[in-house]
Simulated assay, not measured.
Amino acid sequence: MDKKIEHLGNISGKVLLFGGVYSNLQALEALKQVAEHEDITPENCICTGDIVGYCSQPEETVQLFKIWKAKSIAGNVEIQLREGSEDCGCDFRKGSRCDGFSQLWYAYAQSRLSKNALKFINTLPDHITFNYAGKKVMVVHGSYFNTSEFIFKSTPWEIKSANFSVENQDVIIAGHCGLPFSHKKEGKLWINPGVIGMPANDGNSSVWYAILEGHDGVLKYKHHTLNYNYKLTSKLMQNELLPKEYARTIITGIWDNTEILPAVESGLQGFGIQL
């Protein structure tokens, strides 16, 4: 199937990057306030996908995203929802804890999204491209070749590098893995801004995003933490239809398990993010 790519052309000013809203309405509200405080226009706010996910307010989150008019690509969750699939397409190992949990939260989200929300989800492109500070940038979810591919900082550069050759990109903005990082090599830059819907397994309740700034043809970026009303998010998740383990993660900042993580990232659990 041909990919749907939204080309934004040349953009300037600050660019807010984030991913994995995961139906976390309180985090999205807080991030929208950051954008307004930083004077970042909605069209310069770009999500790497998975607006819908683990938390308790999928419909409200999609509707706020629409009102905000920020940009987003389709994550694996959006792709599965618009196709009416029975699972989230996260590429969890069959029978794993994450796979079992996903059967709960995905069914919950699917049952609570309106036709209006699904219509919006269906408009999301597979990728976004733009030119910024003299660089060609592409936004992907997992990777260009596989929406559900888990790519981490420790993932070999050879795996990342193939993505840059698709349209001779200089910068890849990616999501899916849930952890913020950057990796620069051979004049290319891979940035994962992190996700705002769940903590980054670092032992903190705060979540992550990034801001790009271009000056005189030089692209700069910085990762930031976001504080929000996580206690309310966790409280709303404590119902019989969602995994209690994820409600606990919202509070503790520690993932229930590290089964998707490579050894390097798994060993850093609870020790903060190494940027």
Rank of each mutant, 00 (worst) to 15 (best):
residue 182 S to R: 10
residue 207 V to G: 07
residue 174 A to P: 05
residue 161 S to I: 10
residue 197 G to E: 00
residue 172 I to D: 02
residue 205 S to D: 10
residue 147 T to R: 04
residue 153 K to T: 01
residue 160 K to P: 06
residue 171 V to H: 04
residue 179 L to K: 13
residue 160 K to T: 10
residue 201 N to A: 08
residue 185 K to Q: 14
residue 199 P to M: 02
residue 176 H to T: 10
residue 208 W to G: 07
residue 201 N to T: 07
residue 171 V to N: 03
residue 181 F to W: 11
residue 182 S to A: 15
residue 139 V to I: 15
residue 152 F to H: 11
residue 160 K to N: 11
residue 151 I to K: 03
residue 170 D to R: 09
residue 146 N to H: 14
residue 195 V to M: 05
residue 146 N to K: 15
residue 194 G to E: 02
residue 145 F to M: 10
residue 147 T to C: 09
residue 149 E to M: 14
residue 203 G to D: 06
residue 181 F to M: 04
residue 177 C to P: 06
residue 187 G to F: 03
residue 194 G to I: 00
residue 202 D to T: 08
residue 184 K to S: 01
residue 149 E to W: 08
residue 177 C to H: 06
residue 146 N to F: 11
residue 172 I to M: 12
residue 168 N to K: 15
residue 137 V to I: 12
residue 138 M to K: 04
residue 207 V to H: 02
residue 163 N to S: 14
residue 159 I to N: 13
residue 205 S to I: 05
residue 191 I to P: 03
residue 209 Y to A: 04
residue 193 P to Y: 05
residue 185 K to T: 07
residue 159 I to V: 15
residue 145 F to T: 08
residue 171 V to A: 07
residue 206 S to Q: 13
residue 155 T to A: 14
residue 138 M to P: 05
residue 199 P to Q: 02
residue 181 F to P: 01
residue 176 H to V: 08
residue 161 S to H: 13
residue 206 S to I: 04
residue 152 F to C: 11
residue 152 F to T: 10
residue 198 M to R: 14
residue 174 A to C: 15
residue 148 S to P: 04
residue 161 S to G: 07
residue 168 N to Q: 12
residue 199 P to D: 00
residue 167 E to V: 08
residue 189 L to N: 00
residue 188 K to R: 09
residue 137 V to W: 00
residue 186 E to A: 03
residue 144 Y to C: 12
residue 153 K to P: 02
residue 161 S to K: 12
residue 199 P to E: 01
residue 197 G to T: 05
